[in-house]
Design a protein around this nucleic acid. Structure first.
Length: 484
RNA sequence: GGCGCGUUCGUCUAGUGGCUUAGGACGCCGCCCUCUCAAGGCGGAGAUCACGGGUUCAAAUCCCGUACGCGCUACCA
């Protein structure tokens, strides 16, 4: 019955970086669009010249693309409904505002900032709601033309008739009702000729054939204005879905003050895009089952707006770290290799030279032990340089009186091995311990200490095999000299 | 202040009137596995379902009120 193409949009203002809350809004739009086989559109809301930040649009798009949210239509992707930058659509807004003025649904306002401030101050003192008093609505055509001719600065306001009930149906919250008496005669066109969000957003959503407006909860209060605009233009209203907010630990709206809010911050910390997407998808939505690990495709498949929660969600990183580890473990070694090489080049081991095979062995051995790619370096520096010191606690606990002699003899056994495999090391060590009638631990722990300088790490046979015979023997010799 | 939205373990959440002694996940604690550390397995602590009234044989689930939190209240989005 309804085979109209689903079209949704993410409409950020380019203030410099992509907010993590914005990423979630974009994600829900994207998931919904893909789930419905519809279109995901990116539109830049750059109607505030004061907030314009150089390079912000490019940054926004590249961050979105990093996260895997490619727009089907947008400033870079193109499309049949452009331009997708509001600052390039001024003619369109002008054309439409005229219709509203002709219908008396909008009107010129020449009030000065001073009068407005004064009005607001008085209303506050009297305990009234601050609201424009429609002063300029009573201007005659002649008066208006006169002021226009004189180049008097003006704005254009929405003419709202008070005492009407206006309601809309929100997919997430159900019916929401407001009385028009509390709604201000919103400025639609600013004195610099640019539209406000409220006006541009409605005109563009209609012209771009947006079917579902999915945005943050902070827009709920201004939705009646938007709805009124659709009605005044006699346009079909889109469906609305207002998403719950992302919160600081103290439950206030997620802000810079209390932690990182830019998506770039999380990129920089080494979070995988898959983990970040998985995490924020679950902040306010779930499929109704116990599934916690999702790929993007699985999210697209399972997502629905009906299952989005109403209450805000605290942005708490603990679970994100766990998800990052899960996603990293599910990443093919070949991909990790590329990331690790990049990580090494940024580390103090940037001049370290080795084969891909060597790194691949480390990746395999450490996979269960790391949560971030950079931990492939931080948690096992001994793969990149010999230990410079030996963990004292471990020395105390594991280096016994006979450790020195045992290790010395054992190293001689190793020396005789030709191109030993991991299994060769294992066999040699086990035979040795059997022969000496000692438990494996008697040798394993001192050996690990000698090779790595620490008491934790991958299996000992992985460790010695990865390091190789020559390097291992060197390290054992050094340890025999230095420990104790 | 006005208007709106919300309220289940510390956090993310399941739950749409009986299946619930409120389930799962992260985190925390313990045990097992084990050459260490992880990973994995098993188990534990942790929620008077904000509070108070109703409706009903039966309510976390429906209704009303209160409290608290948050959002909006700009020529910002």
């Amino acid at each position: 019955m309804n085979n109209k193409e689903i079209r949704v949009r993410f409409a950020p203002s380019p203030t410099g970086y992509l907010h993590i809350g914005g990423l979630r809004t974009a994600l829900y739009n994207y998931l919904f669009a893909k789930n419905q086989k519809g279109k995901f559109i990116l539109r830049i809301e750059d109607t505030d010249r004061n907030r314009y930040v150089e390079g912000a649009v490019d940054n926004l798009i590249s961050t979105l693309n990093w996260a895997g949210l490619q727009a089907d239509e947008g400033p870079k992707s193109g499309g049949d409904y452009g331009p997708y930058l509001q600052s390039e659509r001024l003619d369109i807004y002008n054309e439409h505002i005229k219709k509203l003025i002709d219908n008396k649904k909008a009107y010129y306002c020449f009030c000065t900032q001073e009068r407005l401030t004064e009005l607001r101050k008085r209303q506050k003192e009297e305990g009234l709601q601050t609201k424009y008093d429609k002063h300029c609505l009573s201007l005659s055509k002649e008066e208006i033309d006169q002021k226009l001719n004189d180049n008097t600065p003006y704005v254009i306001r929405l003419n709202i008739e008070p005492n009407n009930e206006i309601s809309f149906n929100d997919i997430i919250r159900g019916e929401v009702t407001f009385n028009t008496g509390i709604i201000d005669d919103q400025v639609l066109i600013k004195s610099d000729g640019f539209p406000t969000y409220h006006f541009a957003n409605v005109v563009d959503d209609h012209l771009m054939k947006i079917t579902h407006v999915i945005r943050g909860e902070e827009w709920i209060s201004s939705t009646p204005k938007h709805v009124l605009l659709y009605d005044y233009f006699n346009w079909e209203r889109p469906l609305f879905a207002h998403l719950p907010l992302l919160l600081n630990p103290d439950k206030s709206k997620l802000s810079k003050r209390q932690g990182d809010v830019a998506v770039e911050d999380y990129m920089g910390k080494g979070y995988l895009k898959g983990a970040l997407i998985n995490f924020i998808a679950l902040l306010g939505w779930n499929a109704g089952d116990d599934k916690e690990f999702y790929t993007m495709d699985e999210l697209i498949n399972a997502f629905s707006l009906e299952r989005v929660n109403k209450a805000g969600a605290v942005f708490n990183l603990e679970k994100l770290d766990w998800l990052n580890a899960e996603h990293l473990r599910n990443t093919p070694n070949g991909e990790i290799l590329i990331m690790l090489k990049n990580e090494i080049s940024k580390s103090k081991y940037s001049s370290f030279e080795c084969t891909d095979e060597y790194l691949l062995l480390i990746i395999e051995a450490m996979k269960e032990r790391v949560s971030f790619v950079k931990e492939y370096i931080e948690k096992c520096p001994y793969f990149f340089e010999p230990p410079t010191e030996y963990d004292e606690k471990v020395v105390k606990k594991r280096w016994k009186e006979d450790s020195h002699d045992l290790l010395k003899i054992f190293s001689q056994r190793i020396e005789q091995l030709v191109n030993p495999t991991k299994e060769d090391y294992e066999k040699t060590l086990k035979n040795f311990c059997e022969e000496k009638e000692i438990g494996l631990g008697k040798l394993i722990h001192p050996l690990r200490l000698a090779l790595s300088g620490v008491g934790i790490g991958p299996g000992i046979f992985d460790l010695i095999f990865i390091l190789g015979k020559e390097e291992s023997l060197k390290r054992i010799d050094k340890a025999l000299e230095q420990i104790k």
